[in-house]
């Protein structure tokens, strides 16, 4: 029984479905996963709590939710860590993979796979070519202190508000822009009210599939192996899938007359560096950070 909060055809859900298909294939249908999408059986925090309490077998949640329980993983959510999804993919499959599994196990989780949640850009009412163009703009962010802090560091006026209110807020000018993934920008028709899209790629987010470690250990040996293999393979497939999704989408936006620009991110990178020291609080976070970036 696996729960997630995304809609059925989202990029994250595709990863979980691939995991299920691969698992069935590898175990000749002996083991399978019953998927409950759309937050049907709980929101993200509830899903992780459910994994701990044993009310959910497996959960696919954003890395930021999981890092409330596994502190080390907070490192993955820092801005401008990876310039694109292929480099994220390389980092996740490198030596960091073992470290992340160790951290997860330290909190009683088994990490099955790390998927891409897309890369986040800027939607605004004017072009953002350098960090200076962002000065004093009201930018909607998620209600996360790190996001608010980052945009303050970039010179903007960060305005946290509920996602469901964003369209209206852009339309009425309550905010001048927002950060978000290309797929959301397109699907929610934000381009109607903010027709400039700047590919800053400030966050390169991951979504994690976890089980309770004791529950995982109780599975038959061959299913454990199949599950971990399926996790790795489905994650590799899914990250590539995300990359392939992105290109035609950007073309489609350009065809609609949206101004899509590739800005100079050096200013953003420089402004992000001092933030890292604030986020990295423990030695094990430092170790994971080094493993991801080297």
């Amino acid at each position: 029984k696996a729960g997630h909060t995304n809609v059925v055809d989202s990029i994250q859900a595709q990863g979980l479905q691939k995991l299920r298909d691969l698992l069935e294939e590898k175990t000749d249908g002996q083991a399978t996963i019953e998927i409950f999408p759309n937050g049907q059986i709980g929101d993200e925090a509830q899903l992780v709590e459910g994994v701990i309490l044993g009310t959910v077998d497996m959960a696919q949640v954003s890395n930021s939710t999981l890092s409330n329980f596994v502190q080390d993983l907070r490192v993955l959510d820092m801005p401008f860590l990876f310039s694109d999804i292929p480099s994220l993919s390389v980092a996740l499959d490198g030596p960091a993979k073992e470290l992340m599994q160790q951290s997860a196990q330290g909190s009683g989780f088994e990490l099955i796979g790390s998927y891409s949640s897309g890369i986040r850009h800027l939607m605004t009412k004017k072009d953002i070519n350098t960090i200076d163009d962002l000065a004093n703009l009201k930018i909607r962010t998620m209600q996360q202190p790190m996001h608010v802090e980052a945009f303050r560091a970039y010179g903007a006026n960060p305005t946290p508000m509920a996602y469901s209110e964003l369209y209206g807020a852009l339309q009425s000018g309550v905010v001048d822009g927002a950060e978000g993934a290309t797929s959301d920008y397109n699907a929610q028709k934000f381009y109607e009210v903010a027709d400039h899209f700047s590919l800053v790629g400030w966050l390169n987010l991951t979504s994690q599939i976890v089980m309770k470690q004791s529950k995982f250990d109780a599975l038959p040996e061959d299913v454990q192996v199949a599950l971990l293999e399926a996790g790795t393979e489905s994650a590799t497939w899914q990250r590539q899938y995300v990359v392939e999704q992105e290109e035609p989408l950007l073309q489609e936006l350009a065809d609609k007359g949206i101004s899509v620009v590739k800005p100079d991110t050096s200013g953003f990178r420089a402004a992000s560096k001092p933030l890292y020291d604030g986020f990295i609080e423990t030695d094990s976070q430092r170790v994971l950070f080094e493993a991801l970036t080297n």
């Binding site: 925090a45 709590e49 701990i52 309490l53 409330n68 329980f69 209600q143 202190p145």
Partner: peptide, 16 residues
């Protein structure tokens, strides 16, 4: 009580 036990480990998003 199970939730509360978890609640000592986990901090809230904004207020911490």
């Amino acid at each position: 009580t199970g939730l509360i036990a978890i609640g000592y480990i986990v901090k809230s998003t904004a207020l911490q």
